[in-house]
């Protein structure tokens, strides 16, 4: 009996360690594979030039269009999402603080929204675009991606604001400030470090997602100059170039994958470093 118990304990301790190790191994394997394939094709030309004539047959050029496009798209979408999320998150934690049941309902709803896949946003965005009679454009991509990351951002901000003690709010009212002033001067400042994490998280989601921009942002060989022009994005640049039969073009897809992975790595590490210590 004791013998069996002892070995069952040992067995599962070992197995659970093994499984944890597998997860770490897989991450290392992914990054190593991407780096090994992509780093040799990285060059200054790739990150600094737009595709030139014959680029898709392996001639000169780079993926500046996709890098710039992705940044324009993700930055604008994050800004737009922030402009909508901030009032919502503040409203929930200042005006609705007395209505806990309603608050629970809203949080529940936003959590459910988090699960909606990006392809659904993409398909809906495209339909709306057609319905309104617009073309694929940077602006349409921005709106679609913003719609996708807004629930994530609101919930992340909400989690930060939730931790602010109610006493702070009462003290602010006692000194005669309005709710708006309490919201933007007290709560906003208090939660700022936490917001940074929320923003980086949403930004990372925005820059890496392909399915939502597939039909809404379009694809072009040029760096967009206005919101009404279509734009290339890094995920789609990888996706399209990888389906080419020409090796040089495929290699550039791997290089683009390295760039995208690097961006996301930097984002997630800085998000963790900015996170306030509990």
């Amino acid at each position: 009996m004791t013998f069996r118990r002892k070995y069952e304990e040992k067995f599962f301790r070992g197995l659970s360690f093994l499984f944890t190790a597998i997860i770490v191994f897989v991450l290392v394997q992914i990054i190593w594979t991407i780096a090994k394939k992509g780093v040799p094709s990285l060059s200054w030309q790739i990150v600094s030039q737009e595709p030139k004539g014959g680029y898709y047959f392996g001639k000169e050029g780079g993926i500046l269009n996709a890098i710039a496009g992705s940044f324009y798209l993700a930055v604008s979408a994050t800004v737009l999402a922030f402009v909508i999320s901030l009032p919502v998150a503040l409203f929930m934690n200042i005006y609705l603080i007395k209505y806990q049941r309603l608050l629970i309902g809203i949080r529940f709803f936003l959590d459910v929204l988090w699960g909606v896949p990006s392809i659904v946003y993409g398909a809906f965005g495209f339909t709306l675009l057609m319905y309104l009679g617009y073309r694929n454009s940077l602006g349409a991509g921005v709106v679609t991606v913003a719609a996708m990351i807004t629930p994530i951002m609101i919930r992340a901000m909400d989690e930060v604001l939730k931790t602010i003690p109610i006493g702070l709010q009462e003290a602010s009212y006692a000194l005669g400030s309005t709710k708006t002033e309490t919201a933007y001067k007290i709560f906003f400042r208090e939660a700022l470090p936490g917001f940074a994490t929320a923003i980086l998280l949403a930004f990372g989601r925005g820059i890496g997602d392909a399915a939502s921009v597939l039909f809404t942002a379009g694809y072009t060989d040029y760096v967009p100059r206005s919101f009404s022009e279509p734009t290339a994005t890094l995920p789609l640049a990888i996706f399209f170039q990888l389906s080419s039969p020409i090796e040089e073009v495929q290699n550039r897809a791997y290089a683009a994958a390295v760039i995208l992975t690097l961006i996301v790595l930097v984002l997630s590490i800085s998000a963790r470093m900015l996170k306030p210590k509990k």
Partner: peptide, 18 residues
Amino acid sequence: RPVIDILAGIPSVVYGVW
């Protein structure tokens, strides 16, 4: 924790390449 974070952050197209 950062390992999980990074895994969660890797875009799906990169998983596709892998």
